[in-house]
Amino acid sequence: MSNHTIVIPAADLEAATAFYRTAWGAEPHTETPYYVGFNLDGQEIGLNPNGERDQMTGPVVYWATDDLAAKVAEVEAAGGTVVRPVTEVGGGTSLALLTDPAGNQVGFITQG
């Protein structure tokens, strides 16, 4: 796994998938109703149809960590605010979404 994943909110997953297939000239490696994933030269970029529900305000970089709860606590102590607490999203993957002091979103992910 790369050390980060970029996730783009995409309410209309079908339209977004078609757009990014063309824009990036690539086929997704994963295509499910809850996530479409592309690997572009080793960079994971995913489309999330539930981005609005997940309170994403735009594309988010999810940084990989081995201890998600500890990382969230560290980031909160550094002035971050939890937007979406640690959530198991399937396949042994969990993530959390926070904002920095200026309101920019940053995510953290772990895969079990």
Rank of each mutant, 00 (worst) to 15 (best):
residue 5 T to A: 11
residue 5 T to L: 15
residue 10 A to Q: 13
residue 10 A to F: 14
residue 10 A to W: 15
residue 11 A to M: 13
residue 12 D to P: 12
residue 13 L to T: 06
residue 14 E to K: 15
residue 15 A to V: 15
residue 15 A to C: 12
residue 16 A to W: 11
residue 16 A to Q: 11
residue 17 T to Q: 12
residue 18 A to T: 08
residue 18 A to W: 05
residue 20 Y to S: 01
residue 23 A to T: 09
residue 24 W to G: 06
residue 25 G to W: 11
residue 26 A to Y: 13
residue 26 A to V: 11
residue 27 E to Y: 06
residue 27 E to W: 06
residue 30 T to K: 05
residue 31 E to Y: 08
residue 32 T to V: 11
residue 36 V to L: 11
residue 38 F to S: 07
residue 38 F to N: 04
residue 40 L to Q: 03
residue 42 G to T: 05
residue 43 Q to S: 04
residue 45 I to Q: 02
residue 45 I to E: 00
residue 46 G to M: 06
residue 49 P to M: 02
residue 51 G to T: 07
residue 51 G to E: 08
residue 54 D to R: 04
residue 55 Q to C: 08
residue 55 Q to L: 10
residue 55 Q to V: 08
residue 55 Q to K: 14
residue 56 M to N: 02
residue 56 M to L: 05
residue 59 P to A: 13
residue 60 V to K: 04
residue 60 V to P: 02
residue 61 V to M: 10
residue 62 Y to L: 03
residue 65 T to G: 04
residue 68 L to C: 12
residue 68 L to I: 14
residue 70 A to K: 11
residue 70 A to R: 12
residue 75 V to L: 03
residue 75 V to A: 01
residue 76 E to Y: 03
residue 79 G to S: 01
residue 79 G to E: 07
residue 80 G to R: 05
residue 81 T to Q: 03
residue 81 T to S: 06
residue 82 V to Y: 04
residue 83 V to C: 05
residue 89 V to P: 09
residue 92 G to I: 09
residue 93 T to K: 14
residue 95 L to H: 13
residue 99 T to V: 11
residue 99 T to K: 12
residue 103 G to T: 05
residue 103 G to M: 05
residue 104 N to M: 13
residue 106 V to I: 12
